[in-house]
Design a protein around this nucleic acid. Structure first.
Lengths: 343, 343
DNA sequence: TGTTAGCACTCCTTTTTGTTGAGTGCTAAT
DNA sequence: ATTAGCACTCAACAAAAAGGAGTGCTAACA
C-alpha cells in the first residue's frame, strides 16, 4: 500500500482532474491542496506514482492523468465518504420528480433513467426485469367479435400484456374462458418459465380439447416472446456528450454508435448481474467500444427477488462518488416505487 | 421560367452537390455532365443563376452551392421522374423487414421509422395517431382480487390500454361489469373525445349508482391521459450524423439537442398535417433550430381518416427524390400494415 | 451574337516556421 | 528528505508562405 502522502497526492490528482478535465501538474497540486511542500517534491511523488502505474503521462511536459489503476485505488480507498451519500434535498427533489411523472410501470424505468443521467451528467442505463422471471399471475380472455378475442396475460411484477387472437374453429368464447380458468388454477404464482416442465400434462388433460390447449399455450408463448427480452432504457446521451472528452466528432459518432448497440449494453449490464454495486473502470472493461469508459452498475431487488440492473456510463474521468451514491439511492428507491405497481 | 440550358445547369449543380457535398465549379459541370460548351460558358450561366437567387457563393473562388430557392426549383420541376419511384426490389426488401420484425401495433411505427431512416440515411420521424381521435371500441374489466380490477380499454385503431383500479367501496366486480356494458352499449364507435358532450347524461342515468359511474369515467379519462399525447418515433440519428455536414462537434451537439425537443418536432409535423406530401427546404422552415435542414412530411390515412404523419429530416443537401419516393411508398404501406391490426 | 481562351485575382487550405508556456527531470545545495 | 535552479520537451497557437480551385473579365473567334 502507498504511504500517506502518496495517497494524498493521488487523491488530489484524481480530484483535480475530475473537476478540471485538464492534465494536472505538480505546481497545481502543491498550490491548491495544501501540502506543506514544494512542487519539486510533489513532482518526485508523482514520478513514483507513475512508476507504480497509478498515473500517466501523455508526453513529457504536461501534467499527469490518472490511469485506470489510479482511479481504481481512488474508488476503492480514497473516495471521501461524504461523497457517497445523497443530500436530503436531492432526495426530496428526486421524489418530487417521480411523483410528477410516473403513472405506469414502464414510466418508472423511463423516469429513473432520466433522473440518474440528469444528476450524474452521464449516460444512464436501466435493464428492466424479464417478464419470464416474474411469476405468472393470471390469463384472461375478452370477447372481441365472433371469431376473435383479446388475451390478457398478467404477471406478478405488474406487467400486463395483451394481444388479439383468433378463436379456434369450432370453439366458442366460453371455451376460451374455461381454458383460462384451468391455466389459472394450475399455474398461478409460478414463474412463467417453469410452466413447461411442471404441470403441462395435467392442464392438457383438464382442458380436454387439444386445439384449445394449443391455442392458449400459443398465446402465453407469444406474449412472452415480446416481453422476454429485457428492456433497456437509456438516458442522458446528449448530456454526456457535453463533457469535454467529446471534443472530437469521430469520438462522438463512435460513442453514439456504441450506445445504439443494445445487445452490447445488455451484455455489459448482465456481466454484473447480482453483484450489488460494481465499478468497472476504463481498461478494466473487456468490451472494445467502452475501454475508455467507466461503468457503474447496481442490481435492484424486490423482496429478495432479482429484478433488474441500473447503471451509469461515462468517461473514466467521472464523478464516481456522486454516481455511486446516486445508484445506491435509486437502487433502494426503485424497488419501493415498483412495489406500488404490484398486486 | 428559366431557359432550357439554365435549368440543365442548375440540375447538374444540385445533383453534383447532393452527391459530393462539395461546392461545384464550372469545370466539373462542363466535364461531367456533357454540355457541349466550355467551362467559361457554364460560368456565365452560373453567374446568372446566382443573380436570380438559385445558387450561392460562400466567397468568390470556390464553386457554387444551391440555395433553398435552388433546391425548391429542383424539387418542384427538375427532379428526374425515375427517382420518384422505389424499385420493386426495394419494396420487397421493405416488406421482408416488416414481416420479420412486427408483432404489435407500436412495432409498426418503430420499424417504419427504422426503415425510412435506413433507406434515406437521414432522420425519420413518425407521429403516431392520437388515441382520442380513434373510435372507442370497448371497455372491459377483469377481476384481480377482492378490492381491485384491471380495466382494459380498446380503440378502433388497435390500441389496448390497461390499468389497475380499485373497486369502489360497496360495489362488486359484477357492478363494474354491468357499468362497462352500459358504456359499451352507448358509446361504441364514437370518437372518444366525443364521449363527453354526447351521451354522458344517459349513461349516468342507466348506471344509476353515482360512484360507479364516476369510477368508470375516471378509468377512461386516465387511460386517455397517457395515450392522448401522440407518440413520436424517431430513427436514424447516428446515420444522419455520418453525413459530411456534421463535421463540427458543435453542430452535432446542436442537432442532437434539437432532436430531443420532442415538442418542437411534433409542432413541425403538425404544421403539415393533412397536406399530403410536403417538402420544406432549409430557410423555408420557420423554426430556428431547423433552418439548415429540409423536412419532407407525408400524412397517412386509413379509410379516409387521418392517422398520423411520416417525415424525413436531414441537411438541405438531401436526396430529395429518394426521400420523397420512400415517404410516398411508406405512406400507402403503413396504412395497409396497420389495417392488419384493426378489427 | 453566343462562345471561348487567356489571365489576373480571390480566398480557402495546407504547410512551414517561430513563439510561448506549462511542466518535467535532474543536479547540487540546504 | 527537501528544494531551488535550470535545461529540456512538447503541445498549442499564430503568423507567414505556398498551392490550388475557381471565378470574373476581356478580347478574339465562328
Amino acid at each position: 500500500m502507498l504511504d500517506e502522502r502518496k495517497r494524498k497526492v493521488l487523491s488530489a490528482v484524481v480530484t483535480d482532474y475530475i473537476a478540471s478535465a485538464e492534465p494536472v501538474g505538480s505546481r497545481t497540486i502543491a498550490r491548491k491542496y495544501d501540502f506543506g511542500v514544494s512542487p519539486a517534491t510533489i513532482r518526485k511523488e508523482m514520478a513514483d506514482l507513475e512508476m507504480l502505474g497509478y498515473l500517466e503521462h501523455i508526453h513529457t511536459s504536461s501534467g499527469r492523468v490518472p490511469s485506470s489503476k489510479g482511479y481504481r485505488l481512488y474508488v476503492d480507498n480514497l473516495l471521501p465518504p461524504q461523497e457517497m451519500r445523497l443530500s436530503d434535498e436531492d432526495k426530496k427533489l428526486i421524489d418530487s420528480w417521480y411523483k410528477a411523472k410516473v403513472k405506469r410501470v414502464d414510466e418508472v424505468f423511463k423516469e429513473t433513467a432520466r433522473i440518474i443521467s440528469k444528476v450524474t451528467n452521464n449516460v444512464s442505463l436501466l435493464l428492466a426485469p424479464q417478464m419470464s422471471q416474474a411469476a405468472y399471475r393470471c390469463l384472461q380472455f375478452l370477447p372481441l367479435d365472433e371469431s376473435r378475442a383479446i388475451a390478457v396475460l398478467m404477471t406478478d411484477a405488474g406487467f400486463v400484456e395483451n394481444r388479439i387472437i383468433d378463436i379456434p374453429d369450432g370453439a366458442s368464447f366460453d371455451d376460451l374462458r374455461r381454458v383460462a380458468g384451468v391455466f389459472n388454477d394450475e399455474c398461478a404464482g409460478y414463474a412463467i418459465d417453469a410452466l413447461h416442465p411442471q404441470c403441462l400434462a395435467k392442464i392438457r388433460q383438464d382442458v380436454g380439447d387439444e386445439s384449445l390447449y394449443e391455442a392458449a399455450l400459443d398465446v402465453i408463448n407469444r406474449s412472452l416472446e415480446g416481453e422476454k427480452k429485457e428492456r433497456l432504457y437509456l438516458g442522458g446521451t446528449t448530456q454526456m456528450l457535453a463533457q469535454p472528452e467529446f471534443q472530437d466528432v469521430e469520438k462522438v459518432k463512435e460513442t453514439l454508435i456504441m450506445l445504439e448497440e443494445e445487445q452490447l449494453l445488455k451484455d455489459i449490464l448482465h456481466a454484473h448481474r447480482g453483484e450489488g454495486l460494481s465499478v468497472t473502470i476504463g481498461s478494466e472493461n473487456k468490451y472494445d467500444g467502452v475501454k475508455d469508459m467507466s461503468i457503474i452498475t447496481a442490481t435492484y431487488h424486490l423482496g429478495g427477488e432479482l429484478l433488474g440492473t441500473l447503471a451509469v456510463m461515462g468517461p473514466t474521468r467521472m464523478e464516481y462518488g456522486k454516481a455511486i451514491s446516486m445508484l445506491n439511492y435509486m437502487n433502494d428507491h426503485i424497488a419501493e416505487i415498483i412495489k406500488q405497481f404490484r398486486w
